[in-house]
Design a protein around this nucleic acid. Sequence first.
RNA 1: GCCCCCUUGGCUCAAUGGAUAGAGCGACGGCCUCCGGAGCCGUAGAUGUGGGUUCGACUCCUACAGGGGGUACCA
Length: 563
Amino acid sequence: MLSFRKAIAKTAAAAGIPEDEACAAVTVPRERERADLSLPCFTFAKAMRKSPAAIAAEVAAAFAPTDRLEAAEAAGPFVNFRVNRSAWAAELLERLETEGEAWGGTDAAAAEPVVVEYGSPNIAKPLLFHHLRSSVIGQALANLMRHRGHQVVSLNFLGDVGTAFGKLMVGIEELGEAKDADALNRTYVEASKLCADDPERMDRARAWAKRLEQEDAEAVRLWTEAREISLAGFRRVYDRLGVRYDKVDGEQMYVKRAQAFVERLLTQRRARVSEGAVVLDPADESLGVVVLRKSDGTTLYQTRDLVAAIDRHEQYGFASMNYVVDVAQELHFKQLFSGLEALGYAWAERCMHVAFGQVLMGGRRTATREGRGVLLEEVLDEAVRRADAIIAEKNPDLADRERVAEAVGVGAVIFSDLGTQIRRNVDFEWEQVLSFDGRTGPYLQYAHASACSILRKGGEPVRGDASLLQAAPEWELVRRMTEFPNEVERACTDREPSIVAAFLYELAREFRAYHAAGGKDRALRVLCDDDGLRAARLRLVAGVRATLRIGLELLGLEPLEEM
RNA sequence: GCCCCCUUGGCUCAAUGGAUAGAGCGACGGCCUCCGGAGCCGUAGAUGUGGGUUCGACUCCUACAGGGGGUACCA
């Protein structure tokens, strides 16, 4: 908390340390018992020409208790402070309650919007488990940045162009029309098999793709229809996952512009012909060349991404453009950004590849083709089934059971993906994704539900005296919650939702322990006999509940009141 | 070949260059006269190898080993 850091900086200034430097150096020690706040003195040693330990001793000697700081003690090169915990708790809870829904946000937002592209599936294909990652990570980042005060444009960029569409058309010609997403997906899978071992069919697929590229009326009509059907299928899953887009675009909308773009670069001599293809030399020459147009005259994903980036910059003038895409496309994005730079777009440096690790099965990459890989909906359904079975066993009279099972099952799947750093590969294991024990989404939801339960019994609203919160576990909860805004900010700047996931787990764990201790010792209960203390504890629990609720929502999990 | 990522208990993961490396699963042992046991408390168990930088290294540099990914006309 800033006011406490400043108080320490004042003491440090008395010992000759610049106030702003001291303020920045204050840390929360990893070993909590050691101190409430701590000032490591290493960095001041050079300028002051004294040993860190000597500086620490001077700071401790210069210390006089204030209404915020109770004690200071030099421990080698550190100065360990004990704060007035009552004052801290009061300040934290006051702030939390004042900020309300905005708690955890900061006001450091840029004027320009932040664009986040995520999800981006190919039409005519079902969503497989590995599609979970981009969707859920991207949505969490969009939520986090919005919470921080940024204006966010969340964008789904569909793969709605190319031979996939052509194959689908062949399938429809031979197997009949597909009325819904599932039928469309089946038709596509069948058609790809047919095309794979039949050159004639493959030629027809290419012909369809060509007709679409040339905007032949019939092709466009069929494409629009198939795209809509596919999208409806995606939306069904997105709704379950809490994935929401401000805008759904697709590559097809850039095909014509991509062609014109290549022509223009050629006449301007900024692109060149190589081996029959049109290529661009990126600013960083170690990245090779960027192919803009194939020798058969068609454009590529890369070309359309270039045009799309330029278009988005014109539309939004973004503060940052975030591509939440698999790490396998790292080179693609390096080339994209470096290509933009070579073309003189200084804003290329505001583009960012938010790369996440791949989904493996048994150590191998999931193959989208041969139907290897698991359907995302299948995983969600199984998770919900298991959640329902647990409710049937533990809480059979629960109202709204279906909705709760859905939230718990889906929550487990989402949290299993957001719980670790995104760059790690994940090996898909049913038992791991579907676990509800330990460090899981349901654990967090359960902690939230417990807090709700206590507050239902204790009554609201709560205006207790925070200075009565003297017990060690209460202080731990207060200190933990104080970190929330900082953790949200780190998650945004590092593009790492797991920072918030880890924070919430720690908070939930401390809360569960606090709660459990009250089960043994009546004096430690929130709903204890002393009216004043009870009110103070209820206020603390309300703070925990609010922090958990906001955090869960940011990650895309539903905070449940009962489960 | 070149480039990028990963390597921490049996397994899956944490750890802003900071003090005694922290959890979950699994194992073992406790805890329901309970404000919700999807839980709580406890025990055992880990930084791939060799150099280097630093007051201080899981963290930075370097070499090596093992694993994964990428490497112009797929996305």
